[in-house]
C-alpha cells in the first residue's frame, strides 16, 4: 500500500511546472481509485501509464473518470483522455478541469 506522500514525492515536474497544492490534492484523492482499479498489487507512481502499466482497459479508464467526476463534483469530458497516458497526465487534466472554466 502506498502513502500519498510517496505518490507525490519526487514529482519534480509537477513542482517545477508551478502546480501547487491543488495538483497534489488531486493526486492524493486519485490514488485510492487507481490502487483499487489496478488490483492493489502494484505501487502506483505518477509516471505510470494507465493502460500499459496499471493494466486499466479503456472502459476502466472511462469508469474511473465517472468516479472522479463524483469525487470532485466536476464534469470531465471523455475528450480530455485523448492526451492522457500517465497518472500525472490524468491528475493534471483533472486539476485543469476542476480549477478552470469547463
Amino acid at each position: 500500500m502506498l502513502s500519498p506522500d510517496r505518490l507525490s514525492s519526487g514529482s519534480e515536474t509537477a513542482m517545477n511546472s508551478g502546480q501547487g497544492g491543488a495538483y497534489e490534492e488531486v493526486l492524493r484523492r486519485l490514488h485510492p481509485h487507481l490502487h483499487r482499479l489496478s488490483g492493489g498489487r502494484i505501487t502506483v507512481t505518477e509516471e505510470m501509464e494507465l493502460v500499459a502499466q496499471l493494466g486499466l482497459d479503456s472502459i476502466k479508464v472511462l469508469d474511473l473518470i465517472m468516479e472522479i467526476e463524483d469525487e470532485f463534483d466536476v464534469s470531465i469530458p471523455m475528450n480530455v483522455l485523448a492526451d492522457v497516458r500517465t497518472v500525472r497526465d490524468l491528475a493534471r487534466a483533472i486539476d485543469t478541469v476542476a480549477s478552470g472554466t469547463p
Binding site: 473518470i65 465517472m66 467526476e69 463534483d73 464534469s75 470531465i76 469530458p77 471523455m78 475528450n79 469547463p102
Partner: peptide, 21 residues
C-alpha cells in the same frame, strides 16, 4: 463535442451530471 457518460440506466445519475453542467 464534450462527451460525458452517466451510469447505465440511472436517471438520478444523469440528473446529477446535468446539474453539474
Amino acid at each position: 463535442a464534450d462527451v460525458i457518460r452517466f451510469r447505465h440506466n440511472d436517471a438520478e445519475d444523469l440528473d446529477r451530471r446535468l446539474q453539474r453542467l
